[in-house]
Every structure is written in C-alpha cells, then in structure tokens.
Design a protein around this nucleic acid. Structure first.
Length: 416
RNA sequence: CGGGCCGUGGUGUAAUGGUAGCACGCUUGCUUUGGGAGCAUGUAGUUCGAGUUCGAAUCUCGGCGGCCCGACCA
C-alpha cells in the first residue's frame, strides 16, 4: 500500500477535547474518524486492524466449533415482546414513515433472534450441542458514550451463542469458550483477567468478564496477583487491601480495567420464551440450555492502543498491526532512490509481506519518521542514499531503539 | 438523565463589546532533503436561531454538537 495513495493522513495535533489516549492516537493516525460521539468510521488503516482482530477471533471461534453466520441488524418488536426486553431502554427504536409506533429496534444483542431461528431446526438431543456466532455492528443507546472506542453507541461485536441439553454441558462449553477467549486476547497482545461479575438482565447467575488492566478503564475489580482471583467491584464483598479469600496468601489490589469480553450462562430464559425444546433420550421434552459470549472488536482495538503506545504513537503488536512493515524512502526523491525503494517494495510485496510504503516525494525525512512512529507498524525499513551505497536497508523495530543495516533478502527471510 | 467545561478556516489556537489574527495543512513557484525545512504566493473561519447594542466571536436566552464527572451499563 502506497502512502501517497492513502486518502487519510496523519495529524500533528491532538484532536480538540479528546482526553482518552486511544481517541487521540487513533484519530491522529488516521485509523478512525469520529462521525458522532460514540460513532466511528474505520478508515483503511483502522479497518485493517479490525480485520486482523476478526481473523484471530474467527480462528479461535471455529476451533471450538462455532459456526459463523449473520443475523439482521434490524430486529422486529415481536422478538422482544417474547423475552420482555423491548422496554429495556438500551435500543434505538426504529419506525417506518407509515407506522405510528416503532416496529423495530436496531439490534443490540441477538439471543432472541437466534433462539427463534434455532427453534425451527432443533428437535432432538441429537441436534445438540452446537454454537453459532456472528461479527456484526451492534447499536446501544448509551446515555453517555465515552473514552473514544471504549464505549460507543455503535460498535462491532462478535457474539457467540451456545445450545445444550443440560446445564452441565453448557458449563463444559463455557469453559471451552473461556479458553478460547484467553487465547484471543493473548494473541491480540492483551493480558486478560478472568473476573467474576454480576448477572444483570442477561442471566440467572454470575457471569464472567475478561478485563484488561488500564487507567483508561471504567470498571474496577479486586485482583489477587498471586492466584489471579478477581471480582468486579460491583459484586465483590472484598476491597482493596483485603486478604485474598481464595488463596489466603495474597493481598487484593483494586485496579481499573477495561472489559474486553464477557461470557454469560443464560440457562433456559430464552429457550422458554421461544419454546425452544428438544426431545431427550427418554423421549421427554426439555428446554434447551443456552450460553452467550461477547467480544467488542473496536474496544479490543482501542484497548490495544491504550496498552501499547509511547509518547510518539502506537506500538502495534504484530498480530493486529494493520500492516507489518513501514518502508520509508528518505531523502531527496532522486530517480535512484525511487528506483531502489520501489524494488524493495515490490520484492517485499512479492514475498507476501504487508508493507505501507511511504513513497511521498515532497515529504521530508523528519515527517516520515514521525508518521512511522505515530502509525506504529512493527518494522520500519528505510531506503536512502546512505543505505543504497551499502546495498542494504536500515531496519528498526517500533518497540526497540537500535537500528541496523541488513540486505533486503535477509530482511525478507526474517520477516516471512 | 443531572452537573461542569467548551464550540472561531481542513487541524490547533488568539482576539472579553469596536479592522477576526497566528501556526500547521492545502495551492503555485524556487530552494531544501536522515527527526514535522526555508522564502515567496494563494486558499479558507466565528455551530444554528432569537435577543440586547450604534456595533456581538465576545453579553442574554434557546436549539444543536463535543468532551469530562456522576447516574446508568443490557
């Protein structure tokens, strides 16, 4: 990808009014554009990050048997009437011109819709268990959107739902999902803390959240760093400084965290509402037991930028970096410089390495370096008159200070 | 939804009742080329509505919008 053709550009100044780090860095770098408070567009670079995160999530969801699908964002009122969640107040209600009252809501979760769908196909214990998921925009009328990508009114979410013959089997799968989630966050460069939390509207029991420690977080949890016991402050009977009730050894820390994912045991709440039953081995009918599991992709992206940055900009972990390499043609854009940089770009691309190529002719070295630091791709390669003389390229990793000179072929070998 | 701060070219800011200015960006030209370069040139702005006033970016009221705190967080 040639930077000269990228329609977005970077900005030197922080956006006015923005306090949160993720909003500042992602807007300045041209990853996202704020259309409204809590409503963002993903620009080409930002969308690449979302696609990297989606790919990781898909792999891990598929690995635990999740079947990907897509449900409508426009959800008819009949669904919510059955579950009693029409009046929860979080949804954006939608009304056709000819309608007197809203007949739809923009989907803010999909237990109802999927349960209804599934009831057409599930009739026997032999059809169970299974799990299905989608990656889709959700809409929630947050009374107060805030913190850049961390709490929006529209956001991209992966929602997985599982269906089982028993509570026991549901909890078996619940644990599998837990494992998958831990892999996902780790792969995204986040250290997640498995935290017990309150149930709320979704469930009959406690739920679990995946929290990432960050001053930008709006949640508070108590955590034992010795045994990893963690509880959301909402429900915890413990407070910071207390002895850990689990291992009896550690002392609980009270920390701020960002909730990047959550998992809910649903029980039979929705299967009862939609009469989703199956026939068991004894020929008797029973309600399907369900679980639901969410991850906010934009929130993951925002959290990564909160965790991985320095004064100069973002430091993308390789796994979710929009591209792997930032290739800079530095110095006066002579025909020899352009030629050598083009060759490097083409060879890297041919080797299947994703490159952002700063081929802008009128841009000075300093500006290119600042941009590279802000955009934060893992590897920076420089071609200049200096490097050409030595028939090498300068290599620098975003998270390291040193630069070194290497042959292009060598670089390609280490990168691919 | 309550409270606070705020709204000036594309971006960031100055002007507190009297000529809307600066920096960056962008245009054009020349110079320059390893950490946001220089000279010249052009471009572009007071969120909307009502009011007060001879005169409003500035004061008053209202709308809309943004950020922050709280409530809320399914």
């Amino acid at each position: 990808m040639r930077q000269s053709e990228l329609f977005s550009r970077t900005y030197k100044e922080d956006p006015k009014d923005e306090v949160s780090v993720n909003a500042k860095l992602l807007e300045r770098g041209g990853f996202v554009y704020k259309n409204s408070g809590g409503v963002y567009s993903y620009l080409p670079l930002g969308w690449k990050v979302i696609r990297k995160i989606s790919a990781i999530i898909r792999e891990e969801m598929n690995a635990i048997g999740g079947q990907e699908m897509l449900m409508p964002a426009l959800v008819e009122k009949k669904y919510w009437d059955k579950s009693g969640r029409w009046d929860v107040g979080i949804g954006f209600e939608v009304k056709g011109k000819e309608e007197k009252t809203p007949g739809f809501v923009l989907g803010w979760t999909h237990e109802e819709v999927l349960t209804d769908i599934v009831s057409k196909y599930i009739s026997s214990y032999q059809d169970l268990p299974f799990a299905a998921y989608q990656i889709q925009s959700k809409f929630r009328n947050e009374p107060r959107a805030r913190s850049g990508l961390l709490r929006g009114k529209e956001f991209i979410m992966k929602d997985l739902y599982s269906f089982h013959v028993s509570l026991e089997d549901m909890f078996r799968y619940y644990n599998e999902v837990k494992g998958a989630y831990e892999k996902i966050f780790k792969r995204c460069g986040l250290k997640s803390i498995y935290t017990t939390a309150a149930g709320g509207d979704f469930t009959f029991s406690n739920t679990h959240e995946f929290q990432v420690e960050s001053p930008a977080g709006e949640d508070e949890i108590v955590l034992c760093r010795l045994c990893n016991f963690a509880e959301n402050k909402e429900i915890s009977k413990n407070k910071g400084g207390d002895q850990c009730p689990e291992c009896q050894k550690g002392v609980l820390d009270k920390i701020k965290t960002i909730e990047v994912g959550n998992i809910f045991p649903l029980g039979t709440k929705y299967s009862e509402a939609f009469n989703l039953q199956f026939v068991n081995k004894d020929g008797k009918k029973a309600y399907v037991v369900m679980g639901s599991y969410g991850i906010g992709l934009g929130r993951v992206m925002g959290t990564v930028s909160e965790i991985h940055h320095d004064e100069q900009g973002i430091i993308w972990p390789e796994s979710v970096a929009p591209l792997k390499v930032h290739l800079l043609a530095v110095g006066e854009m002579t025909s020899s410089l352009k030629k050598q940089a083009d060759i490097a770009y083409n060879k890297l691309a041919k080797a299947g390495i994703e490159v952002l190529y700063d081929d802008r002719a009128q841009v000075h070295a300093g500006e290119k370096f600042y941009d590279a630091d802000l955009i934060g791709l893992p590897v920076r390669l420089v071609v200049s008159e200096k490097t050409i003389v030595q028939e090498k390229l300068e290599v620098k990793h975003r998270n390291e200070k040193e630069t070194k000179l290497m042959k292009l072929e060598e670089i390609i070998k280490t990168l691919s």
